[in-house]
Structure formats: structure tokens, C-alpha cells
């Protein structure tokens, strides 16, 4: 085809139809979040002492940490879905959840005798955590990757990884309501590992599905 003919055809299709990609991503995150909440409610549900636990700092911290990570990952994802990334991506935002967990670990080290650390770290429920966080994350990850396909990510694997990070953190936030282990030691290791699994899955999905 002659370039001139192509340009003519394109110009006849000028008007825009699709919404901006960050809007599409926000909708996907909302829809995926609702789906994840339903999956969580059906499979696990909140733990029995949930209302009382809300008065405990360690329990509440789990939501602050995972909520911050979800928001930061979603913001980065909305940068990396556009071809101008990484120029406008605020990667330093990741320091916020990092500072939260490092600070919490330091406080926990002061608050508990070192003899108990290993026990706190292993907790009681790590296998459930590693199993259910990825399961709960599946729907939001699928929604986010589908939304990203409408964008123009120039680093597909990285974009997919950010979708995985956001989905994993979102799933961990829901799972936190069920999880009986509240020590930052447990959260850092097992939540971190579970979210990491979803992030790697997202990177693979992005590598395969986000080329255009």
C-alpha cells in the first residue's frame, strides 16, 4: 500500500473512540476488586474476631501497608500503559510501602523478645496465605491485563508485573481480614512472597499478552 493511501484511510478514521487508558485501568481495578472481594467472601471470609481486631495496631497496619502498595502499583501501571513511560513514571513512590514495612519491622523488633521472632515469622497460616492470595488476585490480574491490552505498553513484561503487583497487593489486603497472623515479620515474608508470586505471573502474562 502506498503511504499516501494509508494516510488517507487513517485520516478518514480520525475521530477518537476509545477512552484514555488510565480510565480503562481504573475501571478494571474497580471491577477486578469487586470480583476479588466476592471470591474472598465465598472462599474465606473475615476472621471471627474481626471487629475486636480492628483495635489492634498490627492488624490495622496490614491494611495500610497492602492498601498503599495497591495504590502505588496501580499508579505506576497507569504510567507504563503509555508509550511515554518510563519518563513520567514516579518509581520513587514504591519507597512509601517499603518505608512502611521497614518501619514496622523495626518497631516489632523493639516490641518483642528476639526469642519469639522465629515463631512470629513462621506464624500459623502461611500455606493458606501463599495459596489464597494468588487465587484472589486472579480476577483483578485478568481485568488489569485485559485493560492494558487497550493501551500501548512499550515494556510489556514490566507493565504486566505492575498489574500483578497491584492485583497481588489488593488480594493481600482482602486476605489480611481473614489471616490470624498479624506480626510484621509474618507479613513481610509471607505476604511479600505471595504478592511476589502474583507479580511474576503478571510479568509472564504481560510478556505474552501485552505486545502490540
Amino acid at each position: 500500500m502506498k503511504t499516501d493511501d494509508l494516510i488517507h484511510a487513517l485520516s478518514q478514521d480520525a475521530a477518537i473512540r476509545e477512552p484514555a487508558p488510565d480510565r480503562t485501568l481504573a475501571i478494571a481495578l474497580a471491577v477486578g476488586g469487586v470480583a476479588a472481594a466476592i471470591v474472598f467472601a465465598l472462599l474465606l471470609g473475615p476472621r471471627e474476631d474481626f471487629p475486636e481486631a480492628l483495635h489492634e495496631a498490627r492488624f490495622v497496619f496490614k491494611f495500610i501497608l497492602t492498601g498503599t502498595l495497591t495504590a502505588v502499583a496501580a499508579m505506576l501501571a497507569s504510567s507504563f500503559v503509555r508509550p511515554t513511560a518510563p519518563a513520567d513514571a514516579r518509581g520513587w513512590l514504591l519507597l512509601a510501602p517499603l518505608a512502611l514495612i521497614v518501619g514496622a519491622l523495626a518497631l516489632e523488633m523493639f516490641a518483642t523478645p528476639s526469642g519469639e521472632w522465629a515463631e512470629l515469622l513462621v506464624g500459623t497460616n502461611w500455606l493458606v496465605c501463599l495459596t489464597y492470595v494468588p487465587i484472589i488476585a486472579a480476577a483483578p490480574l485478568a481485568a488489569l491485563v485485559a485493560a492494558m491490552r487497550r493501551g500501548a505498553p512499550t515494556q510489556p513484561a514490566l507493565a504486566g508485573a505492575l498489574a500483578g503487583l497491584a492485583s497481588g497487593a489488593l488480594a493481600a489486603m482482602l486476605y489480611a481480614a481473614h489471616c490470624p497472623d498479624d506480626s510484621p515479620f509474618f507479613v513481610a515474608v509471607w505476604y511479600g512472597l505471595a504478592i511476589g508470586i502474583v507479580t511474576v505471573a503478571g510479568a509472564f502474562a504481560g510478556h505474552r499478552l501485552l505486545r502490540w
Partner: peptide, 26 residues
């Protein structure tokens, strides 16, 4: 050119066009 056309909704109307085009071309 075709990619620029099909992905034109990813350009923000308030940002410069050059870096966006360069990103797609690259």
C-alpha cells in the same frame, strides 16, 4: 503510522506529542 493511529487515545492532549511519538516509533 498505523500504531500511532490505533493507539492515539493513549496520548494526553496536554502533553507534548514528540516523546509520545518517539516512544511508539522506538
Amino acid at each position: 503510522l498505523l500504531a500511532i493511529h490505533l493507539k492515539r487515545h493513549t496520548w494526553r492532549a496536554d502533553e507534548p506529542l514528540g516523546p509520545w511519538i518517539a516512544g511508539i516509533a522506538r
